[in-house]
């Protein structure tokens, strides 16, 4: 459902502009690149966005990919996936993998989107008025109610970042690391409300759950663990986010500044 939203909503503008570009250069688009595009849309776009702008998976529309500097590395990642992460291995033949890889490279040759905002003003908003540090971490500093933002600039396109600030509930992201597979959880940052038998209520995001127990992180960053048998109420607010929308809190310029700051966070991916 979230992916649908991405494709039909936010990505529409993205899709449009890239379509236009595509059409103008359609004649130049060789049959093999077209095949790559078709394969990409079928096998990759659900996670990386139709234009490579990022979704569950990171932005691929970059001139150089952090972990796929060479074509050989890129093909190897597509073939083998990234173990312990949400990046699956591909069952495609090696010819088809080469086609997809070419298309991924093609996405990276598109003109880089210009970000209007000011990075240092954005950083101030992040640290100050935005209250972002109450819920996010950069380099492990801050709180872990929302996703780590250390390398968000690599993982998300500027459009996606803007959406995250204006409409946090448009897409509740999966975290990147092996966390998902590891904890056998389908989603993270699931907003949870619950009440214990002795009448105490709790609110937070789920960190783990099994048939008998649930663990949540409250807005003070404290982790709580409950056996479900001890609860009288348990609500999972799917599609809801504790992150407030900043649409009314910030001016359009301030949103630009925040987006510029977030876009500049390209973390330590390279050191991995």
């Amino acid at each position: 459902m979230l992916i649908v939203l991405l494709q039909s909503g936010v990505a529409v503008c993205h899709g449009k502009s890239s379509d236009e570009r595509e059409q103008s250069g359609a004649a130049a688009l060789s049959a093999s690149l077209q095949e790559g595009q078709t394969l990409y849309l079928a096998h990759c776009s659900a996670c990386h966005g139709p234009g490579g702008e990022g979704g569950k998976g990171p932005t691929l529309a970059l001139p150089s990919l952090p972990r796929a500097g060479t074509d050989e590395q890129l093909r190897r990642i597509i073939r083998g996936g990234i173990s312990g992460s949400g990046m699956p291995r591909s069952e495609l033949s090696s010819e088809k993998i080469a086609r997809v890889a070419d298309w991924v490279r093609h996405l990276g040759t598109r003109p880089v989107e210009k970000i209007p905002g000011d990075i240092s003003s954005g950083r101030k908003l992040y640290q100050g008025r935005g209250g972002c540090v109450q819920c996010h971490t950069i380099d492990g500093i801050g709180k872990a109610i929302g996703p780590d933002l250390t390398d968000i600039g690599l993982r998300r396109s500027p459009d996606y970042l803007r959406m995250a600030l204006l409409e946090p509930e448009a897409d509740i992201p999966q975290t990147y690391s092996g966390y998902n597979r590891y904890l056998s959880l389908r989603e993270n940052f699931l907003q949870v409300r619950l009440v214990t038998q002795d009448g105490r209520s709790f609110f937070g995001v789920r960190v783990n759950e099994d048939t008998f127990s649930i663990q949540i992180r409250d807005l003070e960053n404290q982790i709580h663990s409950f056996y479900k048998a001890e609860l009288t109420e348990l609500h999972k607010d799917r599609g809801k986010s504790p992150m407030p929308s900043y649409r009314d809190a910030f001016t359009a310029n301030e949103i630009d500044d925040l987006v510029a700051f977030l876009h500049s966070l390209i973390g330590r991916r390279t050191s991995r």
């Binding site: 209250g131 109450q134 105490r200 209520s201 409250d218 404290q222 504790p242 407030p244």
Partner: peptide, 19 residues
């Protein structure tokens, strides 16, 4: 802890807290 901007929800302070 300052309540996040634009956002206020009461949080139970104690009980079952890990760490």
């Amino acid at each position: 802890l300052p309540v996040p901007l634009l956002f206020a929800i009461s949080v139970a302070a104690v009980g079952d807290i890990l760490a």
